[in-house]
Design a binder for these strands. Structure first.
Length: 310
DNA sequence: AACTTTTACAACCGCATCATT
DNA sequence: AAATGATGCGGTTGTAAAAGT
């Protein structure tokens, strides 16, 4: 379909907005409300195109915008939502009141993405980066990863490419199991302590349950979120895969707090159900966030230039 | 102190989608 | 049904500030 430019660019100003322009736009919208962006700049006495006005308003001037740095809880939510929604910034922003899609997108690209990369997590798939990890392992001349995990991950990658339906079935089945496990866990925790530390993750009974399988399989599935507005409390930890510090496979009995991928996948660790989420969520500074990253069981050596893999 | 590089984020651009005629 | 307009979205760019040399 033919589509004309949103405005005649001749004579219209571009670039950063001045306080005077902001004032004009704000005053006009306070009186007439937002909308009619094509005619708004002329009526408001602005030498801008409507699109520019709309963006300035929605991304900066809107009174309900929550400015300032992102809290750790917000960051967690963003990571979790991104693992499911992908780069659907507006959908993510819709679940973070006061934050704009542009702001989230920028924050992702400048902070979160880099942090995930440093932690050996692929920011697109949210899965461990096998290329980096393999190389890191080789450089360090020691096995950082459970070889069975690497083998499993490779298998999953192949499965994803060749027959994604299998992973979907596994994923659906696993979510059911996961929910029941979480409910059971909450019940037992509550019974033992009287106060459940898991409660925030499961407050709505629809707690998230992400793992390697989920993210290898369907990072963009939106089904679970369509009718599920998130609160800080309803989001669990990111799906960092914890790898055994030594090459031997830890017996499941030693790590009962780790779920196993059922069926043929054996004892690969996944999202811890009752680990340190409470502890983590109390942290907020950059250094502290970095220390959270250090909780990961594998690390990328300094000698490895992550940028080469970006 | 001067210059260069990096970082952070506001703003722009082009395309997609929905609404209206 | 097709054409057009309005708005929204996501990728990308530009630039000021901060950090490094």
């Amino acid at each position: 379909m033919g589509r004309t430019p949103c405005c005649d660019k001749n004579g219209l100003k571009k670039g950063p907005w001045t306080p005077e322009e902001d004032l004009k736009l704000t005053n006009y919208i306070q009186i007439h409300g937002p909308g009619n962006w094509r005619t708004l700049p002329r009526n408001a006495g602005l030498q801008r195109c409507g699109k520019s006005c709309r963006l300035r308003w929605t991304n900066y001037l809107r009174p309900d915008i929550r400015r300032g740095r992102f809290s750790f809880e917000e960051e967690e939510i963003i990571i979790q939502l991104h693992s499911i929604l992908g780069n659907k910034w507006s959908a993510i922003a819709a679940r973070l009141p006061g934050r704009t899609d542009n702001e989230i997108k920028n924050y992702w690209n400048t902070h979160i993405r880099k942090r995930l990369l440093r932690s050996g997590i692929d920011p697109v798939t949210h899965a461990p980066r096998l290329d980096v990890l393999d190389l890191a392992s080789a450089l360090c001349n020691r096995s950082l990863l459970n070889p069975q995990l690497l083998s499993l991950a490779n298998t999953l990658l192949l499965l994803k490419q060749e027959n994604p339906e299998i992973l979907l079935q596994q994923h659906l089945h696993r979510n059911q199991l996961c929910n029941s496990q979480q409910n059971a866990s909450m019940a037992s925790t509550s019974a033992a302590s009287g106060v459940s530390q898991m409660e925030p993750m499961q407050a709505n009974g629809q707690g998230f349950c992400y793992d390697v399988l989920t993210n290898f399989g369907y990072p963009n599935s939106q089904d679970n979120l369509a009718s599920c507005p998130l609160t800080n409390a309803s989001v669990s930890q990111p799906n960092y895969v914890q790898c055994a510090p030594n090459p031997t496979v830890s017996p499941a009995s030693e790590n009962s707090n780790f779920q196993t991928i059922e069926g043929s996948f054996g004892s690969v660790r996944s999202t811890p159900l009752n680990s340190s989420s409470t502890f983590i969520n109390t942290r907020s500074t950059d250094d502290e966030r970095e220390s959270f990253s250090s909780l990961l069981k594998f690390e990328i050596p300094e000698s490895l230039n992550i940028d080469d893999f970006m």
